[in-house]
Simulated assay, not measured.
Amino acid sequence: MIFLKNKEEIEMMRQSALLVSTTLTEIAKILKPGITTLSLDKFAGEFLADHKATPSFLNFHGYPFNTCMSVNDVVVHGFPNKMELKEGDIISIDIGAYLNGWHGDHAYTFAIGDPGEATIQLIEATKASLYKGIEKAVAGNRIGDIAFAIQDATERKYGYGVVRELVGHGLGRSMHEDPQVPNYGKRGTGTKLKAGMVLAIEPMINMGKKEVYTEDDGWTIRTKDGKPSVHFEHDVCVGSDKPDILSNYAIIEEAEANNPNLYTVRKKAVAV
């Protein structure tokens, strides 16, 4: 079932989404070689608690951590651990916040130092594809329009692998609502978009082939060929004439640019 949100509910969801953005911003300030993802997970959990929110992911279907920390060839759902991040690593940090009865859920991929030209291009392309998809989040369009835009900007343009097994989703009082939002598809197909639908749009793009596998922990998903994967995610409300992005990358990008330990992607995607 798809739940349309009214103006008041959308503003409540914006608060949850912006809390995730703020949490990612604070993490961006402290990311550096030598830091562990487990310490970042603890930091995020405490930050959310300080702001009277609970982590959406913790205990969700048994997930044992506050956040997902996916490094290099881990696509999504990476377990935080005691291994130290090192120069050249990339990390997708995915956070959910449950605040005042509503979920925010989005992600950002950071580069520790310089990961190399090929990985930089993958980061740039994936981030740009997110905004290409968001442009289509307008009433009257269809889910397939979002999916096609993302696939066109990544797989068709660069030959990257668009993960099939994992998709974006509706968001609201539950963390996963209908409809599903894949990152591949045909224009003019799928669920028709209506104003008030809130979607977590999240391209998950592999440098190599699209195939992935799940580790024995039942959660961590890696690329089969061991090549890097990049993940970006925004919370977006479908509008009558234009999309409304509830989350905020601008504050994350500012912290990223001010942290000398992070590689700042040169080509900034233009927000709609």
Rank of each mutant, 00 (worst) to 15 (best):
Lys267Thr: 15
Val236Pro: 02
Val162Met: 02
Gly170Glu: 08
Ser56Arg: 03
Thr191Lys: 03
Thr220Val: 08
Thr67Arg: 00
Ser70Asp: 14
Leu58Gly: 13
Leu19Gln: 10
Lys42Cys: 10
Gly88Cys: 05
Val236Tyr: 09
Pro228Glu: 13
Leu58Glu: 10
Glu9Thr: 12
Ile95Leu: 13
Leu18Cys: 04
Glu211Asn: 08
Leu171Ser: 11
Gly185Asp: 08
Asp41Val: 12
Ser70Thr: 10
His103Arg: 00
Arg173Pro: 00
Gly78Cys: 04
Asp114Trp: 08
Asp145Tyr: 10
Thr119Gln: 04
Ala53Asn: 13
Val212Tyr: 07
Asp217Leu: 03
Asn248Thr: 13
Gly196Phe: 07
Met1Glu: 13
Lys136Cys: 02
Met197His: 10
Ile93Leu: 06
Asn206Tyr: 10
Thr67His: 04
Pro243Ser: 12
Leu18Pro: 04
Ser39Gln: 09
Glu117Lys: 08
Leu4Arg: 08
Lys52Ala: 15
Ile91Trp: 11
Asp241His: 11
Gly101Glu: 12
Ser174Glu: 09
Pro179Ser: 13
Gln180Arg: 06
Gly62Thr: 09
Leu19Lys: 03
Asn59Pro: 01
Pro55Asn: 10
Met175Arg: 02
Pro182Trp: 07
Arg156Asp: 13
Met204His: 05
Val181Asn: 03
Met204Pro: 01
Pro203Arg: 03
Val265His: 06
Met83Gly: 15
Gly172Ala: 11
Val74Asn: 06
Pro33Ala: 15
Ala111Ile: 11
Gly161Ile: 03
Ala97Phe: 14
Pro80Thr: 13
Gly188Glu: 09
Cys68Thr: 14
Ile10Ser: 11
Val230Pro: 00
Ile221Gln: 06
Ala97Val: 10
Phe43Ile: 04
Phe57Asp: 05
Asp241Met: 01
Ala139Lys: 00
Asn72Leu: 06
Ser16Arg: 05
Val163Gly: 07
Glu215Ile: 01
Lys227Arg: 01
Ile120Ser: 08
Ile146Asn: 03
Ile27Val: 15
Ala28Ile: 13
Ala269Lys: 00
Lys210Met: 10
Ile120Asp: 14
Lys42Phe: 15
Ile245Trp: 06
Val265Pro: 00
Gln180Thr: 14
His61Leu: 04
Lys224Glu: 14
Ile221Asn: 03
Thr54Glu: 12
Ala250Ser: 15
Ala53Trp: 08
Gln180His: 11
Thr220Ser: 12
